[in-house]
Design a protein around this nucleic acid. Sequence first.
DNA 1: GTATAAACGGAGTGATGACTTCGAATATAT
DNA 2: ATATATTCGAAGTCATCACTCCGTTTATAC
Lengths: 182, 182
Amino acid sequence: MRADARDNRARIMTAADDVFGRSPGASTDDVARLAGVGIATVFRHFATKTELLEAVLTLRLERIRDRALELAASDDPGTAFFEFFTQVVSESASKLAIAEALTAAGAAAGEEAREAGRGMREAFSGLLTAAQKAGAVRDDAEMPEVYALLIGASRGATAAKLDPETRDRMLALIYDGLKPRR
Amino acid sequence: MRADARDNRARIMTAADDVFGRSPGASTDDVARLAGVGIATVFRHFATKTELLEAVLTLRLERIRDRALELAASDDPGTAFFEFFTQVVSESASKLAIAEALTAAGAAAGEEAREAGRGMREAFSGLLTAAQKAGAVRDDAEMPEVYALLIGASRGATAAKLDPETRDRMLALIYDGLKPRR
DNA sequence: GTATAAACGGAGTGATGACTTCGAATATAT
DNA sequence: ATATATTCGAAGTCATCACTCCGTTTATAC
């Protein structure tokens, strides 16, 4: 691959992440314009709009997974779990916008993105069981419902455009429900 | 207004509620087809697609508010509050689809729909304070974050396509966080 | 420096969907 | 029953957007 091509590909992905993170309804032209390339260049690198969205979403998910793995190395599993949860919720807005753009573009997430999602969930699951073993999270809370809480808190915070204080108060309520019964 | 016109208007709204509740990306033609009228008839009653979506969303919100007012008359405020919460979450899928269709159609909710939203929130607020007075919900939980929880749980349940059992387990976790500290 | 293979950009193309027009149909008043 | 005012619907118009074509430019191998 020629050096300029590699550069352009990277620039397109950055631009797409930015544009779609802000408004899911954005057009491919918008991405090209922000990236400073012609529209044909975008389609040379990503055959369809869906493909581009998937690439961007996958990157996001992988970054989140990496953050989880990083925190898993910590020696305070309880703090690690709640910190990860909080972080995902605070940064959820743009990721959700991208995911929404994808579903709006017709297709469900493809294999690549789904794989990345699985990896992310696995890492989160690791954080959860570690926190439970450490006694920071109640044992009878299982992955599906805890994950649902994560998604829900993210989507709720985004949809309601919560200011940080309200968001933290909401998270505090959720965390109280997750802590072991006294 | 002529009788047939009134009939058609009602049929269009029902059809729109159904269609947009299922798929936010649906076209106006889809609505007309399901309602069994021509497309021009739809636009005669609702000048723009946005206007139609708003009318449908407003109706939904008003129904939810009415349900809250109904439950407010109950003599067990705690049960009333949690029952309302559960019900809103279970029925959220199609309402959210409509709201999404609206934002996708460009405009934010107009005055009419926003007014309906306010009414709904007020009714919910009434349920909350009653439940707190009855000792069923912790006193330090305030409306903004509790409302955020309601939105979040709704959106989470919808987005993750939770099966009813997982949804209930998620709600149980939330409710534990809302109950007074022991 | 030049050849050439690869990448580039901008002007199309075709499909979709919101909205309009206008002649046909139908409800109500007399 | 008939007049007429209102409503109806099918066939348009117009803009947008994903995607393609092709002549031009540019990076790299020699």
